[in-house]
Design a protein around this nucleic acid. Structure first.
Lengths: 128, 128
DNA sequence: ATTTATCTACGAAAGAATTCGTAAAATGTT
DNA sequence: AACATTTTACGAATTCTTTCGTAGATAAAT
C-alpha cells in the first residue's frame, strides 16, 4: 500500500523535469540549469528541493559532502496524475474533450497525426 | 490589447464550471450547486466569487438587491489556457505526448475513438 | 413598523508556496 | 594553520488561497 504523493507545484515540476532529464543531481547542477530559464537564487532552489525531499517527491543521498537528489516519482506516473487532474477539473473527466482541445489549437504535423492514428489503432486492437 | 487574465485556481475553476453550465448566477445558486459536491459555507463561496470579480474572471451586475455574476472568460479559452500550461509545464510543449497520456490510461469507448479519428481527418483536411 | 430572512462587505486566521538572508558545517587552498 | 569557498540548515517575510465569523444593508413577512 504505497501512500499517495502530493501533487508537485509548478516550481517543483520544473525541478523534477530537470532531474528526470539529468538523472540524480546536486542542488548546484539543478540550480545552474534552472538559472538558464529564470532568475533564481541558489538557496531558493535548495529550499524547494529540501521540501520536495520532505514530501517524498525526491530522495537524497547525504553520504558525501554534497547531497545528491534523485526523483522518487516517475515521469510517467506524474504526467498521468497531472493529466487526470486536469481532465477531471476542467473537462468533467472527458478524455476526448481534453484531447481535442490539445490538438485543436496546436497545429500538429502530418507526422504527429499519423502517430496518433497508429496509437488509436493499437488502442482498439488491444481492447477487442 | 486585452490584458491576460490570471489562471483560475482549483476552487475558482469549480465555480466557473457551474456558471458555464447554468449561465449567469447568484451566489446562492452557485453555492447550492457546489454544496452538492462538497461542504462549503455560503460566505466562502461569496468571497471567492467576489475575488474572481476583482480578478476579472467574473463580472457582476449589482443593480438589483442580489448580485448576478456571469463569466467573463469563455469555457473554451480557459480550457485552452489550462491545456497549454500543462503541455508546457509537464510535456515540454508536446501536444502528442499529452494526448497519448490522456488516452492511454483512460479506456475510451470505440465511439470516442471514432470521433477522434474524424477529428484528425478534419485537421488534416483543413491544413491542406 | 417591527421582526425575520437574505445578502453583501470586511477582515482575520490558517495553510501552502516562494523567496532569500544569515549562519553553521564541511571542504579546499595557500 | 589560516583563509576562502561551497554547501546545508534554519527561519523569517511575502504572497496567494481558502475558510468563515461578524456586522451592516436590503428586502420580505407579519
Amino acid at each position: 500500500m504505497k501512500k499517495k504523493l502530493p501533487k508537485p507545484t509548478e516550481g517543483e515540476l520544473e525541478i523534477l523535469r530537470i532531474i528526470w532529464e539529468q538523472g540524480p543531481s546536486t542542488v548546484r547542477t539543478v540550480n545552474d540549469r534552472l538559472s538558464t530559464m529564470k532568475e533564481v537564487g541558489y538557496t531558493t532552489t535548495l529550499k524547494i528541493m529540501q521540501i520536495m525531499a520532505e514530501k517524498g517527491l525526491l530522495k537524497r543521498d547525504t553520504s558525501g559532502k554534497t547531497h545528491i537528489y534523485h526523483s522518487s516519482v516517475s515521469k510517467q506516473k506524474t504526467q498521468q496524475q497531472l493529466v487526470d487532474r486536469l481532465m477531471e477539473a476542467a473537462f468533467g473527466g472527458s478524455a476526448m474533450q481534453l484531447v481535442m482541445q490539445a490538438l485543436g489549437n496546436k497545429p500538429s504535423t502530418a507526422e504527429e497525426i499519423k502517430e496518433i492514428r497508429a496509437f488509436l489503432d493499437q488502442l482498439e486492437g488491444g481492447k477487442k
